[in-house]
Amino acid sequence: MNNNWGTQSFFIIAGYTYRKVSRKENEMELNEKIKDYWEGEADVYSRGIQEELNGPARQAWKELIGEYLPAERNLKILDVGTGPGFFPIILGEEGHQVIGIDITENMIACAKENVKQWGQQAQLLTMDCQNLKFEDESFDAILCRNITWTLDDPKRAYREWFRVLKPGGSLLVFDACWYLHLFDESLGQKYKEREEQIRRKYGRGIHAHADEEKGRVLSKRLYLSDKLRPQWDLDCLLKLGFSKVFAQRDITDRVWDELGRELNGLTPEFLVGAQK
């Protein structure tokens, strides 16, 4: 009998047949869940960057990024996990050539609308940042904001980014330990108390996601959620061959407004930088 199961592995318990799921299949399933989740968050995040573009965060991010990039204009920059297009807009205003990628079609659709609305031009592509479709040594700089924590395989992503970065090029990673409180009992208690305060005051949770519970469940499965960062990132980037790595462990006061600091004070934004 031809069951068309190929090389798949099966086992039988109490008369029921089960298929053994490989590690690769688990990774593919998780990546699809991540993609599906962020497809539903595009509108929420698009509204968020509109607030940033109309407020002091716009200039604050320009100044911070400018401290770590070469002074010349027209750098070729890859914005990984561009979301609704914040970096392509502000870096386009500074005269750079920006390519923004995101794994979610809805985020890219929002990014195209926002970039056009703000009078900028950028190449915006749907692409998995762990499997880039660019030639080696294509970019002067690579930037990302709040994306590495969402990846199912951040080591592979960093390896890919190293590959497409030109020699001497810069990598700037902005992120936070957003869900470490799920694994740290002391931090978890502080987080619970802070969230109760936020709900009483603002009628919302700390993270303004479209589906908070779905995000919480998914975040428990993500590779970086229980890691102590930015130390993990520094170690990883050194092993990959970057010639110089550095970190600022808290850039909160540089880029967040008063509300952002109140909401996310327990998970400060950090910067990890590296040079190839």
Rank of each mutant, 00 (worst) to 15 (best):
M1G: 14
N4Y: 11
W5Y: 13
Q8S: 11
Q8N: 08
S9K: 14
F11L: 10
I12Y: 11
A14G: 11
G15K: 14
T17A: 06
Y18K: 03
E25N: 10
E25H: 14
E29C: 07
E32D: 11
Y37D: 06
W38L: 01
E39W: 04
E41H: 02
A42M: 02
A42Y: 05
D43E: 15
Y45S: 00
Y45I: 01
E51L: 07
E51M: 10
G55H: 03
R58P: 01
A60S: 04
E63G: 05
E63L: 02
G66M: 00
G66T: 00
E67I: 00
Y68H: 15
P70W: 01
L75I: 13
K76M: 10
L78D: 07
L78R: 08
D79E: 06
G81L: 02
G83H: 03
P84Q: 07
P84R: 07
F86P: 04
F86Q: 04
P88W: 10
I89M: 01
I90D: 00
G95S: 08
H96Y: 07
I99H: 05
G100Q: 15
D102W: 08
I103M: 10
E105S: 10
M107E: 01
K112A: 12
E113A: 08
V115F: 04
K116C: 06
Q121L: 09
A122K: 14
D128Y: 04
D128G: 05
C129L: 13
L132P: 03
E135Q: 15
F139H: 02
L143M: 09
T150K: 08
D152S: 14
D153G: 10
K155D: 12
R156N: 04
A157K: 02
R159V: 06
W161T: 02
W161R: 01
L165E: 04
K166A: 11
P167Y: 01
G169R: 09
A176Q: 06
C177M: 06
Y179Q: 02
L180D: 12
F183W: 03
F183H: 06
G188F: 00
G188L: 01
Y191P: 01
K192I: 07
E196L: 00
I198M: 07
R199G: 11
R200V: 11
R200Y: 10
Y202L: 13
I206T: 15
H207N: 14
A208H: 11
D211S: 10
K214A: 12
G215N: 06
L218S: 09
R221V: 10
R221S: 15
F246Q: 09
R249M: 03
D253G: 02
R254H: 02
E262K: 01
L263G: 00
V272I: 03
V272M: 00
G273T: 03
Q275S: 12
Q275D: 13
